[in-house]
Design a protein around this nucleic acid. Sequence first.
DNA 1: CACTATCACTTGCATAATGATAGTCACAGA
DNA 2: TCTGTGACTATCATTATGCAAGTGATAGTG
Lengths: 168, 168
Amino acid sequence: MRHKSLNDTGCPIARSLEHVGEWWSILILRDAFTGASRFDDFQTNLGIAPNMLTRRLKTLVESGLLEKRRYSDKPARYEYVLTNKGREFRPVLWALIAWGNEHFAPEGESIMVIDAVTGERAEPVLVDRRTGRLLQAPEFRIAAGPAASERMRRRHAPFNERKPGAQS
Amino acid sequence: MRHKSLNDTGCPIARSLEHVGEWWSILILRDAFTGASRFDDFQTNLGIAPNMLTRRLKTLVESGLLEKRRYSDKPARYEYVLTNKGREFRPVLWALIAWGNEHFAPEGESIMVIDAVTGERAEPVLVDRRTGRLLQAPEFRIAAGPAASERMRRRHAPFNERKPGAQS
DNA sequence: CACTATCACTTGCATAATGATAGTCACAGA
DNA sequence: TCTGTGACTATCATTATGCAAGTGATAGTG
């Protein structure tokens, strides 16, 4: 996307994608969650070209998802560790894993979420934190929030009028 | 990404990204969830160029996330509706909304998930469907599944050995 | 019947991003 | 001195993106 600003209508999805919208960024985060932290870790794991890795790490650091830390002085060596913001991306990643396992893993699951102690499989679902109710349509839907632009507000009615069966 | 196969280690995240890994694809799905279905809907909502829209819709249909349906014969007119596979992408989208709202919405939330009946705000969190336990580290972690390749299996031990504090 | 509008797209082309290959630099150990 | 590791840059070809403009089929209006 050349002109990100054109799409910045305040939508949190578009905003998020400005930071993690590229292939490699998400794959890098995935590896960071499994403990990768050094340039070479990412490079060998991902098979990414070094220049690409440099570029992606740079944007992730700028976005505040990774922090670049010098872990050695004599030979200057760096590591990239998840910030709090980066760590909180985990639910998205795990939801993506669940979806991918469900729909794009014909030969079975190659990775899955498990209980770290018992090793029992977990099945990730999205619920409301307070009530614990399953977050699904049509019980729940998207609505304009307090900071919604006029455009946003309009977007969340016209479709419902034209198509009563609108999802979300 | 030029050579998807190079990255297809069976990882469900990489697999998912092959289908929805581009900016526009996710934004199109977002709009599909709010009821958009026709070419023009997407175009005016997103401000996307028509050729780009054609390309993205094509890949989404090929991936089985959208279905192209002719809704008019006399003038041939089409609509794009979410398939089941597409609809089940909703948790990822909502997790992304929650994350974006949390970290990239300094001026407040422009959209949010609400109870469709009461209008009350929901706070999306990921839990285990069976036990209802919050899916977070270190209680839960990623592990190699039954269909994991040798490479995958190795990936989920070496890091834990080198860095005990590895985030799942 | 000419004229305009709607919808769902193509085509062509300039610009930008991606990715492969090769090279750099600072040190460390043998 | 020679080899090796870690973390990169530089260069350049290939691809993808995105803008502008055009197309074709039909429908409605004066």
